[in-house]
Amino acid sequence: MKVYIRHFLQKKGWKLIDMSMIKTKKLTFEYIHRDEEGNVEGITKAVDGVDLDIKEGDFIAILGHNGSGKSTLAKHMNAILSPSEGTIYVAGMDTRDEKNIWDIRKNAGMVFQNPDNQIIGQVVEEDVGFGPENMGVPTKEIWQRVEESLKAVGMYAYRKHSPNKLSGGQKQRVSIAGVLAMHPKCIVLDEPTAMLDPQGRKEVIRAVRALNEVENITVILITHYMEEVVYADKVFVMDKGQIRMEGTPKEIFSQVDELQKLRLTVPQVTLLAEECRKAGMPFSKGILTTKEFMEELQCLLS
């Protein structure tokens, strides 16, 4: 009920503080394996009793190695998958309700891993316009939105190009613009950088951070690259469908041993600082960037 009142007030234009963007309660998703006759062979819990509360405007990172259930969780946020047990509310709407599906997808955009498989248009600007076209936005406004979104990700100069001629990082930025043109409150990025080279990864992460900081869009970044997590407000670490760790990047990265147990590699600087600390040098825990490391090192030397 509370959720509906909040939603109602928000529609009236009220700015509510501390609104939950995504909230899950005991969210569970099961993959059922069947043999050839259709008998149940076994059940894998891809997501197992996850409780999350993501506030509007947050930059959230979800970490986990392959098969930890992070992509399955992401697909729930866009109502592509429906939970087996438990509930998930996106912008106050229950994803299990068929009526809500399209509203949820307008509110929570999704960017996938493979840039080639999510670009629909044959020209960059047409692809960005695809979402608004589906939503029935008037032609004039579509053009405005396309221009804004392409500018926000720094791809406006390429608007007339064919997506096939772009680099991976550029394609992924076009995909982000495509989601942005739908004016979502929240963007879920499911390993957007997994297929990119280091340069492309940087471009995409920079674009994502800008969206969060400038446009105040809630970002949920799913990744297994630890370097990308450094700027997040909050990090969740998943393993076997459950959330094992949560906290600020600093808190998470100060537990190097724990992370390595979950088969995750910490950033090299953090690892170096940790090794130095073990060897007796008084470095503080959870150093994330080279800059921090250098500052502490200079303090120690002087």
Binding site: F112, N117, Q118, I120, E126, P132, N134, G136, T139
Partner: peptide, 26 residues
């Protein structure tokens, strides 16, 4: 596999067939 991915991406961007759709370049 690509077709499957693409269908998911299209649905995630609110594609529901031709009805109620507007055109960017009418």
């Amino acid at each position: 596999r690509r077709a499957n991915d693409l269908a998911m991406a299209m649905e995630a961007r609110c594609y529901q067939g031709g009805e109620g759709r507007t055109k960017m370049k009418p």
